Simulated assay, not measured.
Amino acid sequence: MKILDGKMLSSKIEVQIQKEVEFLNQNFIYPTLAVILVGDDPASASYVKMKSKACERVGMNTLTFAMPSNTEEEILLEKIHELNIDNKIDGILVQLPLPKHIDSSKILEAICPSKDVDGFHSLNVGRATLGFECFIPATPLGVMHLLSEYAIELRGKDCVVVGASNIVGKPLATLLLNAGATVSVCHIDTKDVSIYTKMADIVFVAVGKPNLITQEMIKEGAIVVDIGINRLSDGRLVGDVDFENVAPKCSYITPVPGGVGPMTIATLLQNTLQSAKTKLKR
């Protein structure tokens, strides 16, 4: 059993990004990520802080716009429009989830596709489906980078994605399909998830439920990518996989923390850098 070390790979990626940022700075281009945080959800605030620190590590600018939870939808849309037309801003990220009175889909569609570094705009989603160049959501892209780093071939493999969210499950399934894998997607209405996981060469799980995937659900030698993150009552962070019992059966497995999480941040930085680099062509 080998560990898919996202922490190690993300550090390598950040070193490369830092070099490219320095090059852009020499050309008077200063990559800048704008993050909008609505409300006072502790987890969201923590994620925003992590993203800001990552930007600092690689020399990127980050601007955080914190808004109260009762912010009107129109006010948020005005802020997004303001950032859309600001040439100094390369990436715009609205931290999810948003308060219930705000239509998340409407907000994500308001972000200019060329600054949509989260890859959630329908234009980017469509281009990703067709395999065209575009911004791809950070977590699925991070997973693909991790598999590539360990030379894990996807073509012809039987893969199952457990969890069908627009943020992780669906875009990840698209990337796997485009890479030549045979993909099954399980969700809340799937009758028996184990029917699919027992047959899979690679299992990806992103649900948010501790110990959802047990050793009986995985075949010997399978690869398991745990994208879930859950905080237990004792403060520990765990994924969706019963790591202790599942790991011995795996050829490769991601830890939580230290697996996919760091890769999500690294690929968000990559997307922001990609946006900033378009200024070199102007």
Rank of each mutant, 00 (worst) to 15 (best):
N27L: 08
I85A: 15
K79T: 06
I29L: 11
K88P: 06
F28V: 13
A66M: 09
I29Y: 08
N27W: 09
A45E: 09
F23P: 01
K88A: 15
K51V: 01
L83F: 14
I29Q: 08
Q26D: 12
L76R: 02
M67L: 15
E82I: 15
V35K: 02
A54F: 05
N84C: 05
G39M: 05
E73T: 07
T71H: 01
M50Q: 11
T71G: 03
T62W: 10
L77Q: 08
L77D: 09
N84D: 10
A54D: 00
A54K: 04
V58A: 01
T32S: 08
L76T: 04
E72N: 13
A66G: 05
I80V: 13
R57I: 11
K79H: 09
E82R: 12
N61Y: 02
A43D: 13
N87A: 14
E22F: 07
G39E: 09
I75Q: 14
I36N: 05
N87M: 15
S46L: 13
H81G: 13
N27C: 10
T64K: 04
L37N: 01
S46F: 07
V35Q: 07
K79F: 02
S69L: 03
L83H: 11
F65V: 12
P31V: 01
L33V: 07
P31T: 01
N25E: 07
E56V: 07
T64W: 00
A43I: 05
S52Y: 01
